[in-house]
Design a protein around this nucleic acid. Structure first.
Lengths: 96, 96
DNA sequence: ACTATATATGGCAGTATGGCCATGTTGGCA
DNA sequence: TGCCAACATGGCCATACTGCCATATATAGT
């Protein structure tokens, strides 16, 4: 693959994560599966807003969902996204 | 600091990186200092566009600049941002 | 002071993003 | 079938981003 395309794909992943709300969701899912409802309460935005954030994460194969009755449970599909937290923490620490 | 603020700061860092052009710049700077002109040629966008990307990276203390005559040289101020590349690569690999 | 080179900035247009409200869909249960 | 609960989706608005062009700034050389 061309190097340019690699940058493009990496930028897409970063964009999918670059949101305060989505980081909250990912951090929570890093501690285990969780329903959309709980995530909505956690983030504190409108239910539709959180659902859209979840759609973004799904579209990027960062999370996957599982329906059980009327409840939809989400979990991390690529747990290594959690590594970004330590990276970001290092950056924030290093520059301050 | 409140957890919420941590997410906000991390999201800002990720946003600063979440751009194909800025990833190209960072990757290049990871291999050593480089002038704004060279970076412009590398990215291939208008000179003003690249200059603005550099301003974003400066504003987030990801790069710093050094003037020598009329030429401005950039270098990574927080080299650990390079870790994001391996993180992103892992994510892309893990989900495919 | 004048000119050329290297970079930065202001302004604009098109597009994307994030939030909300309203509505649609799906599943469980009477 | 009817209804409620849990999510998802469409539409809309305000704001932010990205690219370009034009212009401003800074430094060197004449």
């Amino acid at each position: 693959m061309k190097k340019r395309d690699v940058y493009k794909r990496q930028a897409k992943v970063l964009k999918a994560l670059a949101s305060e709300s989505r980081l909250m969701i990912i951090d929570r899912l890093g501690r285990g599966e969780c329903s959309a409802g709980e995530l909505t309460a956690l983030v504190g935005s409108d239910q539709s807003t959180v659902s859209k954030h979840l759609a973004v994460l799904r579209a990027h194969d960062i999370v996957e969902d599982r329906r059980e009755g009327t409840t939809v449970y989400y979990r991390l599909l690529t747990p290594c996204v959690l590594d970004f937290f330590s990276c970001a923490a290092r950056v924030i620490k290093e520059r301050s």
